[in-house]
Design a protein around this nucleic acid. Structure first.
Length: 824
RNA sequence: GCCCGGGUGGCGGAACAGGCAGACGCACAGGACUUAAAAUCCUGUGGGGGGCGACCCCCGUGCGGGUUCGAUUCCCGCCCCGGGCACCA
C-alpha cells in the first residue's frame, strides 16, 4: 500500500504523461458532437492570480465533463499580449516589450500546466505575433473598404498618464479604466470603427441571448442607449439658419418656453465671433467649456447658463422663444441643442426656476381637471395634452404621432432614433500594439496598405519613451511609398486598441495556423459558436460588445454564417480576501503557486470550486483549502487500504445478495451520480463537490465496517473516481490506473446512474399537525397517498395530538409529507 | 434617482417547481491514539427552556403585513449591503 498521498510526485508525473501523449489535442471529427468551452484570454502580466485560477478551474471541469460525456471538446487558451503594461515595463526597466511579454507568457503557461488544465496547446495564440496581428490589419482593411473604418478629427478622450486616446468604453466615471487618471478632451485625428451602424442590431440581438446573464444584457442595453423621438427645426429670427433639436417628448412642444444650445454648439462660436457679443455670454461659455467633464456631467453640478440675445420660432405654435446656452446640454448627444419644457422635464424646470423663465403646463394626467396654478415640480409622465392648439385632448402617444407626421409633411422635422453608443475610436498613440495599415500620401490621402503586403511589421524598439506615438521616432518605419501613386509618403504611426485583438481571437482557435486568411470556413463552421464562455463581468460593455460587433461584420463580409458568437455566457464572481478584492496595495494577495506547493493543484482546484457558488464572490480561506486537501487524503487512504484483492466488476454480487448496509452505500452512489450530473449541467460546482464529499463519507463508513466486501467497494471506487476526475484530474488519474485501467481517466465515460438503484426502498414521511412537524413514519417507497395518510394517523404521537380534536383536512405530498389540519 | 443582484448559525454556504431550514466544509468543544505535540479518527455544535432519561416544548432565514393546510421560497410596503447606469433631452 502506498502510504502517503504524495501530490507533488503524482501531479508532476501525470502532467508529463498527458503532455507526452498529447492527450488534450483535438481536431474536427465529422459527425461527432462538438462542444466549445472558452475562458477569457489572459493578459500576460507575469503570474496567474486567484481570479484566473477560478475562471480556468471552472472551465476545465466543464471541458472534462463534456469530454467524458462523449463530446468533441475544444478548450483552448491564448494571450492578450499587446498593451500598455509591457510598454511601461520597458520604460521603467529598459526591457524590450516583446521580451517582457514572451517571458511572462512562458511563466504563465507553465503555471497553467502545473494546474493540470486540459488546454489544447497546439492551438495557443499570442496576439503580439505577426501571424496573429496581420489579421487585425486585414480586418481593418476590409472594414475600410466598406466605410466601416474611417478617420475623423474631433474631440477624443485623452489620458495624460497613459499618453493615449481612450475609447468611450474605456472611460469609467470620467477616469481612465487602467490608471484612474481623470480623462481630458483633446482634438485629434483618429481612426474609428463604425459600431453605431450596428447599434440597432446589437440591441435587438440581446433578446435572443437567453443564456446570457440578465445583468450583462441590461448593461449592454443601457450602453447602446436607444431613444426614440424626433428632430425639429426652430427657425432663427433675422437669420437663414435654424436650430435643430432632438426630443423624446414631441408632445410637449407647446410647452417649450426656450431653447438651450450646448456651449460647444457651432452657432455659439459664430455669435461670439461677432461684434457686440454679450460679455456675460462669453464668460459663461468659456467657463462651461473648460469645466472638468466629470464635474460638468454630474447631475449634482449647478446648472448655469446665459441668454444669447437671439430668438427662434416654435414651428408648431409660431411662438417666439429665447435661445440660451447652458452647461447641462452636451454637444455629443442628439443635436447638441434642446427645446426646454420646464413644466415636464426636471432639468428644464430647475433651470427655469433659477433664471425666471416661464413654465407652461401642456400635459395633464388622465382624468385630471384644470391646470395646477403654480407647479412645484415637473410632471414628466405622459398624459393628455392641454393648451396645445389642435392637439389638445390627444394622448401623449397620439400627439407624438400626429405632430411627427406634420413635421415630416411640412419638412421642418422628422421622427428619429438616437443612440448613446458612439463609434469606436481605435487609434492609440503607443508602441506595443498592431500598426494601423495606412499610408498617408500628400496626393492620395490615407491609402490602405495592399493586402499582399501584410503584415505591416511592428519594428523592434529598444528604448521606448513616453510622449507622442513612439513609432514616429523610427524613420525606417515612417518612410513609405504611396501604394497608389508611388510618391514618398508617411506611414500611420498610431497602433490599434488591444480590444481589436480580443474581438475575434476565438474564431482563430478553430484554425490557428492558417496563413492565407484569418481562418478557414470549415473549421469555424464546425466549432462555432462558443457553447460556453466564462469570464468576469467587467467586460460587459467592453470586450463583450466589441466581439458581438466583429461577428456581425464578419457575417456581412460573408466569412461566417452566424448571428451571435457566444451561446452561453457565464460571469464568475470575484475572489476576495478580508472583504476586499485581492490587490498588492492592500497586501491581501494569496499566490496560487504557494498553495499548489503546499497542498497541490488538485486541492486548490477543488477548494476554489467548492467554497462558493461560481457566480458569487469567493472569500478566500486558507483553512478551507486544507479541508479539501484532507478530503483527497481520505480518498487516497480508503482506496489504497481496500483496493488490494478488489475483484473485477462482473463478480459483483446480485442485488438480492446485498446486506442493508451495502444497499445503502450503493444507493448513495447512484444518487450522487444523479446529483453531480445535474449540478454540472446547471453550473453548481459547489454542490457537486459537496455531494462527492457526502459520498466519500458514506463509502468510508461502509469500508470501515467489519465484513465490508472488496467486490462491493470495487463497484464504488470506479465511478467515484470518474465523478471526481473533472475537478481533481491528477489524483483521479493515479487512482484510476491503480484500479487496473489501461487508458487515461480523461477518456473514461461519465458514469450513468440507475434510477432503480437510486431509489429509496423505505421512505420517511414527515407528519405535520397544523403545519408543524410532530412525527415521522416509515413507509414503503411505493406507498399511495391514502396509505400515507393512514400511516400518519395511526402513529401514536399523532394520536395524542388528534385525540378529542376535529380533523378537518389531511393533505399528503407524494413520498414526502402529510399535514393534518385539526381544530379545537 | 433608475436598473440588476443579494441579506439564512461563529464563518463560507445548502435547500433545483410552496413541503423536514442549516447539506457539505471551516472554526470551536469534548474524547481516542501518543511520554507529549502534530497528524489521524470518533462525538457534539442555531438560540432559549424543560426532563434522571430515550426525548419534549418554544423561538428562528433583514423588518412589517398578506396569500396558503404549509412561506427562506409567492404578493404588497419598507430597511440595509454589493454592482451597474445616471444632466442622454
Amino acid at each position: 500500500m502506498k502510504e502517503r498521498y504524495d501530490f507533488q510526485a503524482i501531479e508532476r508525473k501525470w502532467q508529463q504523461d498527458w503532455e507526452r501523449n498529447e492527450i488534450y489535442g483535438v481536431s474536427e471529427v465529422p459527425g461527432a458532437r462538438k462542444h466549445y468551452v472558452l475562458e477569457m484570454l489572459p493578459y500576460p502580466s507575469g503570474a496567474l492570480h486567484m481570479g484566473h485560477i477560478r475562471n480556468y478551474s471552472l472551465g476545465d471541469s466543464v471541458a472534462r465533463y463534456q469530454r467524458m460525456r462523449g463530446r468533441n471538446v475544444l478548450h483552448p487558451l491564448g494571450w492578450d499580449a499587446f498593451g500598455l503594461p509591457a510598454e511601461n515595463a520597458a520604460i521603467q526597466h529598459g526591457v524590450p516589450p516583446e521580451k517582457w511579454t514572451l517571458e511572462n507568457i512562458s511563466k504563465m503557461k507553465d503555471q497553467c500546466k502545473r494546474m493540470g488544465f486540459s488546454y489544447d496547446w497546439a492551438r495557443e495564440i499570442a496576439t503580439c505575433l505577426p501571424e496573429y496581428y496581420r489579421w487585425n490589419q486585414w480586418f481593418f482593411i476590409q472594414m475600410h473598404r466598406r466605410g466601416l473604418a474611417y478617420s475623423k478629427k474631433g474631440p477624443v478622450n485623452w489620458c495624460e498618464r497613459c499618453q493615449t486616446v481612450l475609447a468611450n468604453e474605456q472611460v469609467v466615471n470620467g477616469l481612465c479604466w487602467r490608471c484612474d487618471t481623470p480623462v481630458m478632451q483633446k482634438d485629434l485625428a483618429q481612426w474609428y470603427l463604425a459600431i453605431t451602424r450596428y447599434a440597432e442590431e446589437l440591441l435587438q440581438g440581446l433578446d435572443g441571448l437567453t443564456q446570457w446573464p440578465e445583468k450583462v444584457r441590461t448593461m449592454q442595453r443601457n450602453w447602446i442607449g436607444k431613444s426614440v423621438g424626433a428632430k425639429v427645426r426652430f427657425p432663427l429670427e433675422e437669420s437663414d439658419a435654424g436650430i435643430e433639436v432632438f426630443t423624446t417628448r414631441l408632445d410637449t412642444i407647446f410647452g417649450a418656453t426656450f431653447l438651450v444650445l450646448a456651449p460647444e454648439h457651432p452657432l455659439i462660436a459664430d455669435w461670439l465671433g461677432q461684434a457686440g457679443a454679450p460679455e456675460e455670454l462669453t464668460l459663461m461659455v468659456e467657463q462651461a467649456r473648460s469645466q472638468d467633464r466629470r464635474i460638468r456631467t454630474d447631475e449634482a453640478t449647478e446648472k448655469v447658463g446665459a441668454f444669447t440675445g437671439r430668438f427662434a420660432q416654435n414651428p408648431f405654435s409660431g411662438e417666439r422663444v429665447p435661445v440660451w446656452t447652458a452647461n447641462f446640454v452636451l454637444m455629443e448627444y442628439g443635436t447638441g441643442a434642446i427645446m426646454a419644457v420646464p413644466a415636464h422635464d426636471h432639468r428644464d424646470f430647475e433651470f427655469s426656476h433659477k433664471y425666471q423663465l416661464p413654465v407652461r403646463t401642456v400635459i395633464v394626467s388622465n382624468g385630471e381637471q384644470g391646470l395646477p396654478d403654480r407647479p412645484t415640480e415637473a410632471m414628466t409622465e405622459p398624459g393628455v395634452l392641454v393648451d396645445s392648439g389642435l392637439y389638445s385632448g390627444m394622448t401623449s402617444q397620439q400627439a407624438q404621432q400626429a405632430m411627427g407626421e406634420l413635421a415630416e409633411r411640412e419638412g421642418f422635422g422628422a421622427r428619429t432614433v438616437t443612440y448613446r453608443l458612439r463609434d469606436w475610436g481605435i487609434s492609440r498613440q503607443r508602441y506595443w500594439g498592431t500598426p494601423i495599415p495606412i499610408i498617408h500620401c500628400p496626393q492620395c490621402g490615407a491609402v490602405p496598405v495592399p493586402e499582399e503586403e501584410l503584415p505591416v511589421l511592428l519594428p523592434k524598439m529598444e528604448g521606448v519613451q513616453m510622449g507622442g506615438s513612439p513609432l514616429q521616432k523610427v524613420p525606417e518605419f515612417v518612410q513609405a511609398d504611396c501604394p497608389r501613386c508611388g510618391a514618398p509618403a508617411r506611414r500611420e504611426t498610431d497602433t490599434m486598441d488591444t480590444f481589436v485583438d480580443s474581438s475575434w481571437y476565438f474564431f482563430r482557435y478553430a484554425d490557428p495556423r492558417n496563413d492565407s486568411r484569418p481562418y478557414g470556413p470549415e473549421p469555424v463552421k464546425y466549432w462555432m459558436p462558443v457553447d460556453l464562455y466564462i469570464g468576469g463581468v467587467e467586460h460587459a460593455v467592453l470586450h463583450l460588445i466589441y466581439m458581438r460587433f466583429f461577428s456581425k461584420v464578419m457575417r456581412d463580409l460573408e466569412l461566417v454564417d452566424l448571428e451571435e458568437p457566444v451561446k452561453r455566457l457565464f460571469t464568475q464572481g470575484m475572489v476576495i480576501k478580508d472583504g476586499a478584492k485581492m490587490s498588492k496595495s492592500l497586501g491581501n494577495v494569496v499566490s496560487p503557486d504557494e498553495i499548489v506547493r503546499e497542498f497541490g493543484a488538485d486541492s486548490l482546484r477543488l477548494f476554489i470550486q467548492f467554497c462558493a457558488p461560481p457566480d458569487g464572490e469567493l472569500e478566500w480561506n486558507d483553512k478551507g483549502v486544507e479541508g479539501c486537501s484532507r478530503f483527497l487524503k481520505r480518498l487516497w487512504r480508503v482506496v489504497f487500504q481496500f483496493h488490494q484483492g478488489l475483484r473485477p466488476a462482473q463478480d459483483f454480487p446480485h442485488f438480492d445478495q446485498l446486506s442493508d448496509a451495502e444497499r445503502k452505500v450503493l444507493r448513495k452512489l447512484h444518487q450522487t451520480i444523479q446529483k453531480v450530473t445535474a449540478d454540472l449541467e446547471r453550473f453548481h460546482q459547489n454542490t457537486a463537490v459537496a455531494a462527492l464529499m457526502e459520498l466519500l463519507n458514506a463509502v468510508t463508513e461502509y469500508a470501515d465496517q467489519d465484513g465490508a466486501r472488496p467486490e462491493v467497494l470495487s463497484q464504488m471506487f470506479d465511478p467515484m473516481v470518474r465523478l471526481l476526475a473533472p475537478f481533481t484530474p491528477h489524483i483521479c488519474e493515479e487512482l484510476w490506473r491503480e484500479l487496473g485501467h489501461e487508458g487515461s481517466v480523461v477518456n473514461a465515460a461519465w458514469p450513468a446512474y440507475d434510477p432503480q438503484l437510486a431509489r429509496e426502498e423505505e421512505i420517511e414521511i414527515v407528519v405535520q399537525i397544523n403545519g408543524r412537524v410532530r412525527a415521522r413514519v416509515g413507509a414503503p417507497a411505493e406507498v399511495t397517498l391514502e396509505g400515507m395518510k393512514e400511516l400518519a394517523l395511526a402513529d401514536p404521537r399523532v394520536q395524542d395530538f388528534v385525540q378529542g380534536k376535529d380533523v378537518r383536512k389531511v393533505i399528503a405530498v407524494p413520498g414526502k409529507l402529510v399535514n393534518i389540519v385539526i381544530s379545537g
